[in-house]
Write a protein that binds this DNA or RNA. Structure first.
Lengths: 140, 140
DNA sequence: ATTCATATTTGTAATTAGTACAATTATGTC
DNA sequence: GACATAATTGTACTAATTACAAATATGAAT
């Protein structure tokens, strides 16, 4: 795994320091769209000298090189996503969880804007109440 | 106009105080997706006793009743939109402006998620470089 | 009109995510 | 091994937003 992470960073023009690999690996193995602070809290015990600033620096670097996505879903904190493939997000207003959602290819095609501007990114965010909170459990 | 604002607030179950009408009217007449502070700065001269806190309170109230949209487009500040009809947003990475964009009806239909959850809202955000910044001017 | 309960507004203080910056440490090259 | 460069670290700072309690306005009942 660690070898994959190293290669992935290098492919994005990022020198693979231990700290960067740790952050990237965390995002690859945790699809919870964590905040910078959650990542720091998770890595800190096994990397006692790790600095919060390094986590922020690293996340900004990863996002600027397209290695991760910075999601402005939560008004309070930026959330990060190690999965850069095309997908939408669902924010549960009840529990705050962010779930991945598929986007149909033809819907995506129709979303292409007609005006002659440069579009780098399209983000789709659903807001509502997730399965668990909506008591889908009653169907089990 | 003021009568419209008053009626609009009441239709959303909001008692139309002067402050609330001023904030709502500002959002109805300025489609720039302003921040709370921009609204405060614009209203403050003509309402000298207006408090920043009131603007924040009012915007949160308006958003919670569906009278305005709170846009989590900018990671730093929440932006507000007095137009609650279906449309997408375009954020220019260069100048920071947020422009409204139409969304094709059939694209919207295809975006309906298939999973059985309650979806209250779908937000679509394009990121790129806007016409002016991309030097569409050369075509004039 | 006066009183009273409730709703709203206000200002200050606190919170908190994120950044700036300079010092320290690590890395790679000659 | 020495040196230039890059990365990391910790502290101090910024700025958006909220908490809170006091002051003010509003509306109903007498």
């Amino acid at each position: 795994m660690s070898a994959n992470v190293q290669e992935y960073l290098m492919r994005h023009g990022i020198r693979p320091s231990l700290q960067r690999m740790a952050v990237m690996e965390y995002l690859m193995t945790h699809r919870t769209h964590p905040t910078a602070d959650e990542i720091y809290g998770a890595l800190s015990p096994s990397m006692p000298t790790l600095s919060r600033t390094t986590v922020y620096n690293t996340l900004n670097l990863l996002a600027s090189r397209g290695a991760v996505l910075a999601l402005d879903i939560d008004a309070r904190q930026t959330r990060f996503d190690g999965d850069t493939s095309l997908h939408a997000h669902f924010l549960c207003k009840s529990c705050g969880a962010i779930h991945d959602m598929p986007v149909a290819d033809d819907a995506m095609r129709m979303l292409r804007p007609f005006v002659p501007v440069q579009v780098d990114d399209v983000q789709i965010l659903y807001k509502g109440v997730c399965c668990e909170c909506y008591k889908c459990k009653t169907n089990d």
